[in-house]
Amino acid sequence: MIEISKLGFSYDKQQAPIISGLDLTIREGEWLTVLGRNGSGKSTLARLLNGLLLPSAGQVCVDGLTTLEPDQLWRVREKVAFVFQNPENQFIATSVEDDIAFGPENLGYPREEIIQRVERALELMNLQPIRSKAPHLLSGGEKQRVAIAGALAMASRYLVLDEPTSMLDPQMRRAVLESLHFLHRELGMAIIYITNIMEEALLAERIIVLDQGRIAREGTPVEIFADQQWLLSMGLDLPQISRLSGMLDQAGYHQFAGIVDFQQLLETILCAK
């Protein structure tokens, strides 16, 4: 469990805080999506979760360990892995397998254990065919999967992803999302997913919407996407299916109100007459 209480953060004391008075509990194994316009504090919150940034006020506790204590911080980083938006920004080694091994090596695991962990991560993320390739020669989607494999090799329980697909084409995006589904469903890894793409937000079990560094609303995707006017006021888009069902609702076909799912909208139209 990640427990965030009265969290505050500012880069510069002169300026308004980026995050202020934020309380949030992230459960083990849940898929939480974080939405909010640019500047709402999404990326800052993400970086506070594993101590890439440290709170100016309040605290972040991961399974009882706080990021504020230097001797606990390393344990936190083991538990909470991070995948950045730009896949270029997170490689250090000259081959895929060395890159995946970097985390567990730094944690000082015995060689045998490192090899085991890397093998498993390569296998689960389907990266064996490219295991000895240089990371900079990979496609964007492969790079993101290598980054995710790195988290697997660390045996992290929480994976924070900051717009991991925004630089990817639709095919790679699907591959990355499938990998995440696998980790979530099969290994019970918690996914904390920041995105600007509303269709991706629908994959969550729970969504929080940030505005000016606070949680403006939280709920299931259906709850969040029910209030379309409010979402627009938060600077967010609506998924196409939501927009369509909203327009139909407004046109007097109230049976369409609140539909966010493609199949459900399809069936409802087919049964409308």
């Binding site: 639709p170 095919q171 269709e199 299916i241």
Partner: peptide, 20 residues
């Protein structure tokens, strides 16, 4: 080519295919 048409476009095509 690895591309998807937008969901609303897919919806009307699917509806038509189902005989609407």
């Amino acid at each position: 080519a690895g591309l998807e048409i937008p969901q609303s476009a897919r919806l009307v095509r699917e509806l038509k295919a189902r005989g609407l």
